[in-house]
């Protein structure tokens, strides 16, 4: 469900950065109000656990898609919403920096889509309402599945909204939604089951871990860590053993959704929005009369029936963009080489 920088506009990316920064600051303040230094390493460890769990892709039956554990609900249940949000944000930052998953501008969107909904919506309003008090296996199963499904639905819808608002992608809204939501429904159900297995085990072995977090209290000192660890091992075995049995190399849900959309044969006619955009583009480029793109843009607008009668634009004018661009690239490369030599001499 990672979004990439290239499909985002700076306005959308920047807004989501600001939103995410605000939630981060708020969460950090909440944690500062109840200090506990053992929580900090625990957060780091659980972040690493999520990382490991995410290396397993499980396939979604029927759809031919696959997804990996988001881990948001597990973290929220074990750490409480504030710490869980920070851990998920860290996981996403590390992925963006070292594995080029998502991008730097998209970080705000990705953190919001994948961390905000499980931590601050699904956990407090669904999971805790269902399984917060006097949990039973059934309550935990229903609570985690419902939470995971709803958190993922909201996250997926958020991806659609952010992509649409950016206006770089040509995916039609309806198609995008119709593919994103069902796929993330399936992913959500699987994620819910996995989360339920983990939470049930922890609850059975060390109920106080769940109680402590459900009261938003830091974990007690001297918790029998080994049993908690054992719970995670069982969870990892469950995730790895059962789910990867039918894991596949299918692309991630979002990628699959887009690929499926792109593969649809009956293509819809471009929306009026595209024309509007072209008109804007034309205006913007109007002060560059010799520029190939401008002229062609104008021609396109004049002749909407482009399939059969494409305009005969003088190659000479369109080539300006290519030559200019190519020259610029060459110059940039030459300058880079020059810098490299200079830097080499300085050593």
């Amino acid at each position: 469900m990672h979004m990439a920088d290239a499909l985002l506009s700076p306005a959308v990316g920047g807004t989501m950065w600001a939103v995410t920064a605000g939630i981060t600051a708020y969460s950090a303040k909440k944690l500062k109000d109840s200090p506990d230094d053992s929580r900090v390493p625990l957060m780091g460890v659980l972040g690493a656990f999520i990382f490991a769990a995410q290396m397993i892709n499980f396939s979604i039956p029927v759809t031919g898609s696959s997804g990996h554990l988001g881990g948001g609900m597990i973290l929220a249940i074990l750490l409480g919403p504030y710490a869980a949000f920070l851990v998920l944000a860290s996981v996403l930052i590390v992925q963006a920096l070292f594995f080029a998953d998502g991008g730097i501008l998209a970080l705000g969107c990705n953190i919001f889509n994948m961390a905000f909904f499980p931590c601050f919506f699904a956990y407090p309003f669904i999971y805790r309402k269902i399984a917060g008090q006097n949990p039973t296996y059934k309550k935990i199963l229903i609570g985690t599945t419902l939470s995971a499904v709803i958190a993922l639905q909201l996250g997926a819808f958020s991806v659609v909204i952010e992509t649409m608002a950016s206006g770089i992608s040509e995916l039609p809204f309806n198609t995008f939604v119709l593919l994103m939501q069902p796929i993330h429904l399936a992913i959500g159900i699987v994620e819910g089951f996995v989360t339920a297995a983990v939470v049930s085990f922890v609850w059975k072995e060390r109920p106080e871990v769940l109680e402590a977090s459900s009261n938003d209290m830091p974990l007690q000192r001297g918790l029998p860590l080994k049993k908690v660890l054992a719970g995670f091992v069982v969870a990892a075995l469950f995730t790895g053993g059962i789910l990867s049995w039918f894991a596949s190399s299918y692309p991630d849900g979002l990628e699959w959704s887009m690929a499926r959309t792109a593969g649809v044969e009956e293509l819809e006619a471009p929306e009026g929005g595209a024309h509007g955009f072209l008109a804007g583009l034309q205006e913007k480029l109007a002060f560059l009369p010799d520029y190939g793109f401008r002229q062609s843009g104008t021609v396109t607008l004049e002749r909407p029936d482009t399939e059969t009668r494409w305009p005969a634009v003088d190659p000479g004018t369109t080539v300006s963009g290519f030559v200019g661009g190519g020259l610029t690239l060459l110059l940039a490369g030459a300058a880079g080489l020059l810098l490299s030599r200079t830097a080499g001499r300085c050593k």
Binding site: E170, L171, T261, P270, A274, G297, W310, V313
Partner: peptide, 12 residues
């Protein structure tokens, strides 16, 4: 997926 949805000829 952009080539599939945006089929306006922009330049020739």
């Amino acid at each position: 997926f952009n080539p599939f949805f945006d089929r306006h000829v922009l330049i020739s």
